[in-house]
């Protein structure tokens, strides 16, 4: 995960508290999705960024997950996200993230 984004996530977690924060991931593949998830839960695995060694344990969803899609106006989702969902390995990304969160859901 981009160092600047890591810094911003850390800042927001300090400002609003971990409980009131949900991170929406937009990673285009399974590997980067899992790295992003790890970064905002257990800390930066590369030990290069502001979240190195910091276990924020934040809740995270991918933009393709039904829980998130439900919250977005379908017209806007269709316009901005749907083509990417169709073109990327959306099912595999969602499944991997669900497994990473534990319990498959």
């Amino acid at each position: 995960m981009d160092l600047e984004v890591q810094g911003r996530v850390k800042e927001l977690a300090e400002q609003y508290g971990k409980d009131d924060l949900v991170v929406i991931l937009g990673a285009p593949n399974v590997d980067s999705c899992l790295v992003q998830f790890e970064t905002i839960t257990r800390g930066d695995p590369t030990y290069a960024g502001p979240l190195a060694g910091i276990e924020l344990g934040l809740r995270a969803f991918h933009i393709f997950e039904p829980e998130v899609k439900r919250l977005i106006d379908p017209g806007r989702y269709g316009e901005l996200i749907e083509t990417l969902e169709l073109g990327l390995e959306a099912e595999a990304i969602v499944k991997a993230l669900q497994e990473a969160r534990g319990g498959g859901k």
Binding site: N29, E82, T83, L84, L86, G87, L88
Partner: peptide, 13 residues
């Protein structure tokens, strides 16, 4: 393959 998948998705949409 990834690029073709994305192009196909764009053409489909």
């Amino acid at each position: 393959e990834r690029n073709y998948r994305m192009l196909a998705a764009v053409l489909a949409s």
